[in-house]
Design a protein around this nucleic acid. Structure first.
Lengths: 158, 158
DNA sequence: CCGCCCAACTTGATGTGTCAACAACTACCA
DNA sequence: TGGTAGTTGTTGACACATCAAGTTGGGCGG
């Protein structure tokens, strides 16, 4: 009954899968803990604010923001609600465009992202980027795209 | 104010980081959703049961199980509590060994893992393994180890 | 043999994510 | 014009994770 959980994977595949767990499980946890500790903000919250900060007018429609951060609209709505309460961003209905709503980063929000960015980038470097050879970086990009495509291809199978 | 969130990363580094988000965010979400749908069990629950099923006596000390599944003891304790209620596993104090407790997989638990395994492995193949060239598999393993080492090296900085 | 400390869990409060239902609009078509 | 379907967001209930505190048992120094 040995090797049940991964019985159908070859040894090298199994290794890759186990290694991938580090990326899937430990890395997000480590980043989240560190962001929380250093900046009082979730990794996901940082992503949201950061994406907004990259827009020329610090504004983006909610559904687009959801796509950019790989989150459901529902999750985003909850998070934006909280961030709004903290006055880091604000929402506004876009007139004459159905239920479309835009989110914009406030000055306070921008300040927070700016303050949090260096620590975030440092963590990303320390845990991932700086540990990789240039060719490994390239492969990682390829893998990411492949996985993304795979998931997008089969989101729901009755 | 462009590129704020990733301003300190080069273009190729930024690509790798964005691609990595697919692994970090979309992959776990996809796997979790699928496991839940197909087997009525969390990805993490599956890992716990699966690790136990690989032990000769289907038994392991809680702290070791926590290490194997990269989880905190607290998280594991909660989860084991739930799994115990579902009669998929059971706990027993190890006598004369401090507070040490062992968890063992019940027959019902084993049956569930066995039933869930094919779907799990299929998903892992479909979303990740089968999308990768052999050399990419190898690189992924390397990356995983590197990241793991990096995180282990700096878990807490005052 | 007593007291302190550490290791191995457990517990409860709080926050966050997810899912399913609902609500608000627009657009299209008869 | 009125109905119906499709987008886009919001909400509430529930499940789960996390964190900080508490508990329990052993070891060890004095």
């Amino acid at each position: 009954m040995n090797e049940l959980g991964t019985r159908w994977l070859r040894a090298d595949e199994r290794d890759a899968w186990l290694a991938n767990s580090a990326l899937m499980i430990s890395l997000p946890a480590a980043l989240d803990a560190r962001m929380q500790r250093e900046s009082g903000m979730t990794f996901f919250e940082y992503m949201v604010l950061s994406v907004l900060s990259e827009e020329p007018d610090r504004t983006m429609q909610l559904s687009h923001l959801a796509a950019r951060t790989s989150s459901s609209l529902s999750r985003l709505s909850h998070v934006v609600g909280r961030l709004e309460k903290r006055e880091l961003m604000s929402r506004a209905r876009i007139p004459g465009a159905g239920r479309r709503t835009s989110a914009t980063l406030t000055d306070a929000g921008l300040a927070e992202v700016v303050a949090a960015a260096p620590g975030h980038v440092a963590a990303v470097r320390e845990y991932l980027i700086d540990r990789l050879e240039p060719d490994e970086l390239a492969v990682l990009s390829r893998i990411g795209s492949a996985v993304d495509a795979a998931i997008r291809a089969a989101p729901d199978v009755s």
